[in-house]
């Protein structure tokens, strides 16, 4: 299955992926109109420490602890992708506590969680963080 991977060597720490992720979640066609004056809640986040930068998002684990811990069945595995049904999420945040990568975060309204679903709801065929990474540090590959 294709997953999002980050080549740390090429990650510049520009944080553009976060903004494209946040933009994708809106229904707007213009990023300035969509995000100006707003705090963003991206599903990918860039970790920075000195000269080291890398973006982190959901690993779509084969045996995900988040899915095991979900008490309402909001999280499930569909075709290898860890999907979230926000309607069923009650915001207990068990998944946030159990994810070893810190890849799940509270959604903007605070009542449910949000996580990367590989932009499956868009028709691009490739996640927006991958498509818009200026240095090809974020890739969408099948590494087995």
């Amino acid at each position: 299955m294709k997953r999002v991977y980050v080549n740390e060597k090429w990650c510049l720490g520009c944080h553009l992926c976060e903004y494209y992720c946040a933009f994708t979640q809106t229904d707007k066609t213009d990023m300035a109109y969509a995000l100006r004056g707003r705090k963003i809640f991206p599903m990918i986040s860039v970790e920075d420490s000195g000269a080291v930068h890398f973006a982190v998002n959901c690993r779509h684990c084969a045996e995900p602890l988040c899915v095991k811990g979900c008490i309402t069945g909001a999280l499930s595995i569909q075709d290898g992708v860890v999907r979230l049904d926000q309607e069923r999420c009650i915001g207990c945040f068990t998944c946030i506590l159990s994810c070893p990568y810190g890849a799940i975060s509270p959604a903007e309204d605070g009542h449910a969680v949000q996580k990367c679903e590989l932009c499956l709801s868009t028709n691009e065929g490739v996640p927006q963080c991958v498509k818009n990474c200026p240095n090809a540090a974020i890739v969408f590959e099948d590494r087995g």
């Binding site: 510049l12 520009c14 944080h15 553009l16 976060e18 903004y19 990023m31 300035a32 100006r36």
Partner: peptide, 13 residues
């Protein structure tokens, strides 16, 4: 300023 979303990419780059 109508288009700047203060993402700070310019600052970082």
């Amino acid at each position: 300023l109508d288009r700047c979303i203060v993402c700070r990419v310019c600052e970082r780059q």
